[in-house]
Computed example of a mutant assay.
Amino acid sequence: MNLKTCTKCGVTKAFDHFHAHNRSKDGKRSTCKTCRQSEDPGAAARARRYYANNREKVLAYQKAYSKDHPEVAARSQKVWLGKNGFLYQVQWKRNNPGRVNALTAKRRECVRRATPTWANLVEIEKFYIEARALTESTGVPHHVDHVVPMTSKLVCGLHCQFNLQVLPGKENLQKHNRHWPDMP
């Protein structure tokens, strides 16, 4: 558990007692929520009013700040994607059904071409059953991963029982098609 000392009251509290602040080193404000509320209870309402009256000015400032401080922008974008990334994907898929169909067809064709005639389809199916069972039992999404990627600039693996493994979804998505055994 991360702890922080409030600069106003001097009490050491858990991180969840401090508001987020992406400009600080640890990502939290220096005063706790209680002290912040007691010192200015109407600050949030004033900030909303200011933003409503000066929207273009605020957005221009934010854009300039993001350009001058790319590390801060990247960190806040990562936080936003962590909270909203899935919803963004769902919305994108809903707004682009033709593109989704094209990408799905391309993936299906890639798998079809990478499946050799000697591949044991029953063994392949067991990997998908195992991934679903692990997802349901642990609550963590699991994917069937190709150890050697099917599409890459350097190597192309097969869709067969010897090239498959079950991985947690997060680990598989981080791997992309850039990592495989005996990689040059």
Rank of each mutant, 00 (worst) to 15 (best):
2 N>Y: 07
3 L>Y: 05
4 K>N: 01
5 T>A: 01
7 T>W: 03
10 G>E: 00
15 F>S: 12
22 N>C: 14
23 R>G: 14
23 R>S: 11
25 K>R: 11
32 C>M: 00
34 T>I: 14
39 E>G: 12
40 D>H: 06
40 D>F: 03
41 P>A: 12
45 A>I: 02
47 A>Y: 14
47 A>C: 13
48 R>M: 14
50 Y>M: 09
54 N>W: 04
57 K>R: 15
58 V>M: 09
58 V>C: 10
61 Y>D: 13
69 H>Q: 02
72 V>P: 00
76 S>M: 13
84 N>G: 11
87 L>E: 08
90 V>Q: 15
91 Q>R: 13
96 N>V: 07
103 L>D: 06
104 T>I: 10
105 A>G: 13
105 A>V: 05
109 E>Q: 11
110 C>H: 05
111 V>H: 03
111 V>K: 05
115 T>H: 09
124 I>W: 06
125 E>A: 14
126 K>E: 14
128 Y>A: 07
132 R>S: 10
133 A>S: 09
133 A>R: 15
141 P>Q: 04
145 D>P: 14
146 H>Q: 11
148 V>Y: 13
148 V>D: 08
150 M>H: 04
153 K>R: 08
153 K>V: 10
155 V>T: 00
158 L>A: 04
159 H>G: 06
162 F>I: 01
167 L>S: 03
169 G>A: 15
170 K>E: 10
180 W>S: 08
181 P>M: 00
181 P>R: 00
